[in-house]
Amino acid sequence: MPKPVTAQPDPIRALVVDDEAPARRRITDLLARDGDVAKILTAENGADAIAKIREERPDIVFLDMQMPGVNGLGVIEAIGAEAMPVTIFVTAYDRFAIQAFESNAIDYLLKPFSDQRFDTTIARAKERLNDLRLRNADSANALGHDLVKLVAQRAKPGAIWHWIVVKSRDTTRLLMTDQIDWIEAAGVYVNVHSQGEAFLCRASLTTVASRLDPFRFVRIHRSSIVNIRSIAALERRSHGEFEVQLQNGDRLMMSRTYRSEVEALLGQPL
């Protein structure tokens, strides 16, 4: 009786985009040892990457975020988030490399990365690519689409707040979000705590949370958001809760509901 024929995965076409030759070589060498990768393309800059994506239609793209001229954001804008191939971000800056990016939906490589980290990343990319091919549906999300949208959104003026407008009588003040320690719900508005003072902002906590930098601010309770850089210590309490001690001396409670969000931002368990 003949053995059943096992379907072989379609060959993968990969594009490596980086302005530094050693960085490109590092990834191409790792890809070359992978039997599923049939073709490896390279691009030295963003403009070249745009042309290669449009002409070659690679399955997977390793996209450096920091390049002179047209950077990774420019590539995304030119191609369009929905049209991007399965995308893995490559960066030397940890402001892009937060645990929130490490999920089944997206991935990144933080330079310098180990062979093991690369293997984990390419395995995740293959899984998502196979899912797309099996579904054969335009509505299926490619690896990195959610992150692509987020990063592209960050490039638009006003999409992410770097200042918060607070008003008091006839005075309008601009508080830099870098100087904010934490924010608490105050009815339909919020109180913004910065440098020992509290200011009323006429926006809901949900609205403020959606406009703050997700690399820096995290919700710790249904009524409070904290600047991760303002945290001095976390003290475990009962039922999975923590007391959050800020550097300015304020003490807040972190409910277990939001513990996973804090751990995701830190990239480590509490």
Rank of each mutant, 00 (worst) to 15 (best):
M1K: 02
K3A: 15
P4N: 11
A7T: 14
P11I: 01
I12C: 14
V16L: 04
D19F: 05
E20N: 09
P22D: 00
D29R: 13
A32K: 12
V37L: 10
A38D: 10
A38N: 07
D48I: 06
I50T: 12
A51D: 13
R54S: 07
E55L: 08
P58F: 07
P58A: 08
M65I: 15
P68F: 08
N71V: 06
I79T: 00
G80D: 00
T91D: 09
Y93P: 03
D94I: 03
D94W: 07
R95M: 08
F96A: 02
A97D: 10
I98H: 07
I98Q: 04
F101P: 01
F101Y: 11
F101E: 02
S103C: 12
I106N: 11
I106S: 13
F113K: 06
Q116G: 02
F118E: 04
F118T: 03
F118M: 03
D119P: 01
T121F: 05
I122M: 14
A123G: 14
K126E: 07
E127P: 01
R128E: 09
N130Q: 15
N130A: 14
L132T: 08
L132S: 09
N136T: 05
A137T: 06
N141Q: 13
A142I: 01
D146Q: 14
D146S: 13
V151H: 09
Q153I: 01
Q153V: 01
Q153K: 14
K167W: 00
L174K: 12
D178Q: 13
D181N: 13
D181T: 15
D181M: 06
W182Q: 05
I183V: 14
A185S: 15
G187T: 09
V188E: 13
N191T: 11
N191F: 12
Q195P: 01
G196Q: 06
C201D: 02
R211W: 01
D213G: 01
V218F: 01
H221S: 08
H221V: 09
S223W: 11
S224C: 12
I231G: 00
S238N: 10
H239T: 12
E243T: 13
E243S: 13
Q247C: 09
N248I: 08
R251N: 03
L252H: 03
M253D: 11
S255L: 05
R256Q: 09
R256K: 11
T257P: 00
S260A: 14
E263W: 04
L265E: 02
L266K: 08
P269D: 12
L270K: 05
